[in-house]
Design a protein around this nucleic acid. Structure first.
Length: 471
RNA sequence: GGCCCUAUCGUCUAACGGUUAGGACAUCGGCUUUUCAAGCCGGUAAUCCGGGUUCGAUUCCCGGUAGGGUCACCA
């Protein structure tokens, strides 16, 4: 790489970040980090109508949570500051003047209603609407009160290269006299993102594939400005559950921070997102962030959209949970437990039953952990194992109590309890004649961890007390 | 509708024109087992259709079909 790679993530603060936005940010970031380049965060807030209060803060929060850091941006500054478009209006005006001077920009003389009329007429006639067909012969001087339109210098078919999609081309109807500066004085995306990308020295423009059809417009601006082209990188969409639509809220596109609330590990989310549209050379699926940076390769980005799959995300999350150290795991799980349940001994039991830390909430709500902390309530007939007579169950339990009493409290481990209970159970017709009632007496649940580990966690006294209560 | 893009198991995907079309998730079955969870082992499952090109197409070309995107004073 002779030239330093410079990429950017340029969200508009019009709502919450969802997985599609995040993946675009991720790929741009991975590329910059892989080549030791620069990653810029730029806020594109030129649509004051749609701007949502707090959206910028939300974006920063999301990126911080997942660990995507930026070298230049609104909060950290940089040599191209400011990084918020609404603070760069003079710059866009300067570039607009350049186009005006070249005779390539003019004020739109029509009212909105008139333009809408043209559009409707074209639609009625079944042909594409092109503003340039209504381009006035003579332009007035632009006074800033009317929208400033670009005058496409040459109507032609563009051919260009995209790092993901390869050689692309478009018909000339993709070219039109689009608006550069709106009547409110703010520039349009079509214009200002190009100005900024040029000014900031962006080498790779990474964005969703919905922009492919706008690229001829962009090319005509680059050309009019006499600017060098960056590398274009369009990304396939992430599709909703049915696989047929670009992921939308209805399809389950969530605020990224919800994944935090649900207890996903940020590294796992990035891992899954990376794989949603990209595949390494080998079959590796579990990646640390550093491994992603090392392996990521734009040439291996898919062209087709990928359907979102919560199951796979959950699997990847669990794999990342498994990589946590015992201490990290304990700290994390304890965070999700109410104070009265913070017993480190139940951590392994919780861990093997969850794929996200947030699942702990569900376990607590369903009362699946209550028996560790208080004597369960149950009806005695539930102690019966299949068709075993009640008397037999009781005598088995009595035997277990007797033997367990002999087991010293200091070595009352799952392993030793198992030895003792198996000693009795193996002599029975079915081991369930003992193990089921013991487990049930201890947990009061149809489904629970095995009786040995429960006994260890409860300790000798509590275990015996619960067994005693059962007979 | 015009323009553009895409097409391998249910899903994410692998396969410099030559592979028994590979892996993973999910699913199913088995093992383990007192139940659950976990774990281990195994199975089912795909090249959209039709034409070319070629000794040979998942792969290249054309057409169809299907899906997606886009045609704003939104980004």
């Amino acid at each position: 790489m002779e030239q330093k790679v410079v990429t950017r993530f340029a969200p508009s603060p019009t709502g919450f970040m969802h997985v599609g936005n995040l993946r675009t940010a991720l790929y741009a970031w991975l590329l910059a980090r892989k080549y030791k380049g620069i990653f810029i965060l730029r806020i594109e807030d030129t649509d004051k109508e749609r701007e949502v209060e707090g959206a910028t803060e939300h974006i920063l929060k999301v990126l911080n949570w997942v660990g995507i850091n930026w070298d230049e941006g609104p909060d950290v500054g940089g040599s191209h500051a400011p990084y918020v478009q609404s603070e760069r209006l003079d710059l866009y005006k300067k570039y607009a003047e350049i186009l005006i001077d070249k005779g390539l920009a003019y004020p739109d003389p029509y009212t909105t209603e008139e333009v809408d009329g043209f559009r409707e007429k074209a639609e009625l006639e079944g042909r594409p609407f092109l503003f340039r067909e209504h381009r006035p012969e003579n332009f007035e001087k632009w006074d800033g009160t009317k929208p400033l339109r670009f005058k496409v210098p040459e109507i032609k078919n563009y051919h260009w290269h995209d790092l993901v999609y390869g050689d692309l081309s478009a018909g000339s109807e993709a070219l039109d006299d689009f608006i550069l500066i709106k009547s409110d004085g703010f520039p349009t995306y079509n214009f200002c993102h190009i100005v900024d990308d040029i000014e900031m020295g962006i080498t790779h423009v990474i964005r969703g594939q919905e922009y492919i059809s706008s690229i001829p417009k962009f090319l005509s601006i680059y050309e009019a400005l006499g600017a060098d082209l960056p590398s274009f990188v369009c990304l396939p969409h992430i599709m909703g559950k049915n696989g047929k639509n670009k992921l939308s809220k209805r399809d389950g596109a969530k605020d990224i921070l919800e994944y935090k609330v649900e207890g996903y590990l940020p590294e796992a989310l990035l891992n899954y997102l990376a794989l949603q549209g990209w595949h390494p050379k080998d079959d590796q699926e579990i990646f640390t962030v550093d491994e992603l940076i090392k392996s990521f390769d734009v040439n291996r980005v898919q062209k087709a959209g990928a359907q979102w799959d919560d199951d796979k995300l959950n699997w990847i999350n669990k794999e990342h949970m498994k990589k946590l150290s015992a201490d990290e795991l304990q700290d994390e799980i304890l965070k999700w437990l109410p104070e009265k349940m913070q017993n480190p001994k139940i951590i392994p039991i919780i861990f093997e039953r969850i794929t996200r830390f947030g699942d702990i909430k569900g376990m607590i709500e369903k009362g699946e952990l209550d028996f560790f902390f208080k004597q369960p309530e149950y009806s005695k007939e539930k102690l019966i194992f299949k068709n075993t007579p009640a008397e037999k169950i009781l005598s088995n339990l009595e035997q277990a109590i007797k033997k367990l009493k002999d087991l010293d409290g200091s070595i009352f481990t799952a392993e030793n309890v198992k030895k003792v209970l198996m000693g009795i159970a193996e002599g029975l017709e079915s081991k369930g004649e003992l193990l089921h009632p013991v487990r049930f007496a201890l947990s009061g649940l149809d489904k629970s961890p095995d009786p040995f580990i429960i006994a260890e966690i409860l300790g000798k006294n509590e275990t015996l007390s619960r067994l005693q209560k059962a007979i």
